[in-house]
Nucleic acid binder design. Structure first.
Lengths: 146, 146
DNA sequence: AAGCTAACTTAGTCAGGCTAAGTATCTGCC
DNA sequence: GGCAGATACTTAGCCTGACTAAGTTAGCTT
């Protein structure tokens, strides 16, 4: 049995995250659309969103989102629009091309992970599946609901 | 029970990783030493290393490591040296200040994680602990050893 | 209508990654 | 022994992604 003390576990999780960052760099390399861009496109799937919402949702400041959307627009993946009720707000919407880029990019990432997961034993996969909710709570900083 | 199909799991893990990146940005913000730098300092703990080794170990190209080490040296956390047997190789060693920065930076990250883990139920922690080896295998792309 | 607040953008800075090309040194072969 | 090619690094130049500070435009409140 592994030691489940928070401090010890934290060390293990820390190492895991370092390796994960490395892996993510590899997955993303050679891809036309970067991970943050893909992430923003994903937010647009349910309809146009305002800049401030996007910034908030992705945990960045507005200037960062401005630049991100500039690039998406430059590459034809999204378009800016205006909100009728408030002339200050700028909305962003997916283009068809953006929708395609999103699904292609997602497929690439998911396939990569799925392939790796498929190589593991059912036992390992079960362990990961069982830990997903707990990891999600940990990442979001939410205490376990008891 | 969660569905353990690779494809479905991959989707969940993908979402998890996105959130993790967000969390890592938060942990790292306001920290004097960045995560990659901390990571390099960690490699130096066991003694001086050559540039090419460091680049290899951290999955980056040499020019990237050159810049990284430039910054570490600029900030007094590491020093470059020469290898007696081969005049082409450059070695990098920790300074006392670097050792301190490393342990402080590590402590910050680990404490952050430990605190979050401590808030989870023992059941959640156990699930995470049980999944660590499997996740590690997944990340490294190694098939389960059976 | 004035003045404050809110939503974005612009400008400037920094870290971290890359490729291509330059320099110095080592190695192997004739 | 000396030259050719390989190896170890650095330099230069480019891109993404993040930040703050400051500018602009539009809405809100009084």
């Amino acid at each position: 049995m592994t030691d489940e003390t928070p401090a010890v576990l934290a060390g293990e999780v820390n190492g895991l995250m370092r390796d994960m960052v490395l892996m993510l760099r590899r997955v993303g390399a050679e891809q036309p659309v970067t991970a943050p861009q893909l992430s923003v496109l994903g937010s647009l799937l349910t309809g146009p969103r305002r800049m401030s919402d996007l910034a908030e949702e992705h945990g960045v400041r507005m200037p960062t989102m401005t630049v991100q959307v500039n690039r998406l627009e430059r590459d034809g993946l999204a378009v800016r629009g205006r909100d009728g009720s408030d002339a200050r707000v700028v909305t962003v919407a997916l283009t068809d091309e953006g929708r395609e880029a999103l699904s292609a990019g997602r497929a690439h990432r998911i396939d990569y992970l799925a392939e790796r997961l498929a190589r593991l034993s059912p036992h390992d996969r079960a362990a990961i599946a069982a830990a997903v909710p707990a990891l999600s709570r940990m990442i979001k900083g939410a205490p376990t609901d008891e």
